[in-house]
């Protein structure tokens, strides 16, 4: 089947998911991101790679952090940036996704950064945009959040360069997590030999092992000797109900405490895609502790998004 995010020549046309992306393209993004890390440390934090281009952030679902980092990334590349919170405007007036997208196309946007609550929304938009437009998925339902997955992998690579010799544990709500899916695909493609997911059965999708991961329900076992501890955010609405009895019980079983972290390798790093629920999935002592790389993740997020945008723009020339 034709991979909808690649051009006929096998170059990146859209970034919709990390699944099925060739290792060479993943590495190209990560290597390019390396070169952008330095930009933020300069006095003039700008490069002219997207000068004259218009990047349009279309957020059908609310987000502050992802939207902001995409805006910063586009601006550092000298693009013009428009941000639309569609959830609060046209969708409530009955406009369809395609109407919105077509309108923005008519305004000569070059790149769409899209977030939507429904899985597959980014694929859908990519299938229907004009051929010169690039679509970047900034999160679609439970499906994918590829830039987040890539920035997590980028962070890991910075701290643990030997990807072929790593144990990574992803802990929490995998069922609803687009971040977890994107991380898993990126890690397995890059040759990480052991990716574990740790969660109660209510927070794991069917046949999750088919994604190439090992399944643990006991955090004490699952954390043993891992190099990377990736915590997932638990949405408030999932805390009390049929999936979980309470935030307290969740923290007791799956919250990351210093004691549990001690089971991992002594130099293990701790990651979280944010925003964190302190005391629900992670103890503040750990979140702010010496093994935490949660803030560097945010910094690298901008570099990775710059890398993706510049590669896409370069592929249309």
């Amino acid at each position: 089947m034709h991979n909808p995010q690649l051009t006929k020549e096998g170059k990146l046309q859209h970034l919709l998911t990390t699944e099925g992306l060739p290792r060479a393209i993943l590495n190209q993004i990560l290597d390019t991101a390396e070169s952008f890390v330095g930009v933020a440390e300069r006095e003039v934090k700008k490069v002219p790679l997207l000068r004259g281009k218009t990047v349009c952030n279309i957020f059908f679902e609310n987000s502050t952090r992802t939207r902001t980092t995409f805006e910063i990334a586009a601006k550092r590349l000298s693009a013009d940036v428009i941000t639309l919170n569609v959830s609060t405007s046209s969708q409530s007036k009955g406009e369809t996704i395609l109407d919105t997208v077509n309108n923005l196309t008519a305004m000569h946007a070059d790149m769409f950064v899209v977030r939507h609550a429904e899985s597959g929304a980014a694929h859908f938009i990519a299938r229907h945009v004009a051929p010169h437009i690039h679509v970047i998925n900034a999160g679609d339902g439970r499906h994918a959040h590829p830039t987040q997955g890539l920035l997590d992998v980028f962070t890991i690579r910075r701290y643990k360069p030997d990807m072929h010799n790593l144990r990574v544990a992803i802990i929490g709500d995998v069922l609803h997590s687009r971040v977890a899916r994107s991380e898993i695909h990126a890690l397995t493609t890059l040759g990480v030999p052991e990716v574990r997911v740790i969660a109660p059965k209510t927070l794991l999708p069917q046949h999750v092992e088919k994604l190439g991961v090992q399944v643990y329900h006991d955090m004490n076992e699952g954390l043993k000797d891992v190099d990377v501890v990736m915590m997932l955010r638990l949405q408030n609405e999932r805390m009390n109900g049929a999936l979980l009895p309470s935030a307290q019980e969740y923290f007791k079983c799956y919250g990351l405490t210093p004691e549990k972290l001690a089971l991992a390798k002594p130099d293990a790093i701790v990651m979280h895609p944010g925003p964190m629920n302190r005391g629900v999935e992670i103890d503040s002592v750990v979140a702010d502790g010496g093994q935490s790389v949660i803030l560097p993740q945010v910094t690298y997020g901008i570099a990775v998004r710059m890398a993706v945008m510049s590669i896409l723009a370069g592929n249309s020339e």
Binding site: G120, H143, Q206, H207, K210
Partner: peptide, 8 residues
């Protein structure tokens, strides 16, 4: 498997 991959 498919719904798990696609997040449906």
């Amino acid at each position: 498997e498919v719904a798990t991959r696609l997040g449906l």
